[in-house]
Structure formats: C-alpha cells, structure tokens
Amino acid sequence: MGDYKQMPWFVKIEEGKVDKPTFDQYVPAHKAYIQDLIAKGHKARTGYWAEQRGGMLLFEATSKEEAEAIVADDPLVKHGCVNYQLYEWRIVME
C-alpha cells in the first residue's frame, strides 16, 4: 500500500432554484445517490446551509472529468433543482 495516492477532493456548491415541494421530491433519490458514492469509495459528504437555500457536496474523484460526471448524475442536478459550481479543493492541512 506504499504507493497509494489519495484522490483529489472536489466540492459542489449549490443553490436551490425550485420551490421546496419540487426540491423535496428528489431528496430521497439524492440520499440514495450519496450512499452509492460512499459505497464506491468517493467519501462523499452532503449537507445544506442553515441560513439559506442551498448546500454543498464534498467528495473524492480521480479527476475533474470524473467529478463532473459524478455531479451530472446527482438527481438534484438531473432534475434542474439547483445551480452549482464545482471546484477542486486542495487540502493544505489535515
């Protein structure tokens, strides 16, 4: 295991753009999608802002291209519930 290289981290910052009932109907699918990412080793974490609409998804991926594909598969993205920005997060201290 000496050659193990940690995958890069990515962050999707999102803002809701639909009404709450529309958004909420896709939350169970979003949670299942996150569980699948965790099971596949992406160390995904998701949550929402306490003060306003929107949230964040933090996960590992092998590349920006893989990260973009992962985000595109999020039910909240597929159903047009959020606007988002995707960033590679470079950790300087752990």
Rank of each mutant, 00 (worst) to 15 (best):
W89A: 02
K17S: 05
M56I: 08
G16D: 10
W49T: 05
I13R: 12
K17F: 01
W89F: 08
M7E: 05
G55L: 08
L86F: 03
A39F: 04
Y26V: 04
Y84M: 05
F59D: 03
E60S: 05
T46Y: 09
V18D: 02
E88N: 04
A72D: 14
Y33D: 04
V71Y: 01
I34K: 11
G80W: 04
F23C: 01
V77D: 04
I38T: 11
I38P: 09
D19Q: 03
Y26Q: 02
H30E: 11
Y84L: 09
G41R: 13
W49G: 06
Q52L: 04
V77P: 04
Y87P: 02
M1I: 06
P75V: 04
T22A: 09
A72W: 06
D19T: 05
A39V: 01
A44H: 10
E68N: 02
E68F: 01
V11E: 12
Q25V: 08
Q52S: 12
L58W: 14
E60N: 09
Q35F: 06
Y33A: 06
V82N: 10
Y48N: 09
M93A: 15
W9C: 08
F10T: 01
D36L: 09
Q35I: 00
E14Y: 13
A61S: 11
V77Q: 06
A67E: 03
V27R: 13
E65K: 03
G80R: 02
K12M: 15
V77C: 01
F10H: 02
Y4F: 14
I38C: 10
D24E: 14
V11P: 09
T62D: 06
Y33P: 03
D74M: 08
Q52F: 05
M7Y: 06
A44Y: 11
F10S: 02
A69V: 01
L86W: 05
D74N: 09
W9I: 14
I38S: 06
V71M: 05
I70L: 15
G80Q: 06
D73P: 04
D19K: 07
T46P: 08
G41Q: 10
V71F: 03
A29M: 12
S63L: 00
K31V: 12
A29R: 11
G16Y: 04
Y48D: 04
T62E: 13
K78I: 06
E94T: 15
I34C: 12
H42G: 02
I34S: 06
E66H: 00
N83V: 05
Y48H: 08
K43E: 14
E51G: 14
Q85R: 14
K5M: 11
D73H: 00
K43N: 14
A61T: 09
K64I: 06
L57A: 13
W49E: 09
L57P: 07
T46E: 13
K40C: 07
D73F: 00
V92A: 15
K78R: 15
G2A: 11
P75D: 03
H42A: 11
R45S: 03
P8K: 00
V92W: 14
H30L: 10
Y48A: 12
F10I: 00
K31D: 06
H79W: 07
M56Q: 08
V82E: 07
W9Q: 14
G41L: 11
K12A: 10
I91V: 13
V82L: 11
K31P: 01
M93I: 11
P8N: 01
E94I: 13
H79D: 14
K20P: 01
A39H: 08
E94F: 11
T46G: 15
E94S: 15
R45T: 02
K43P: 00
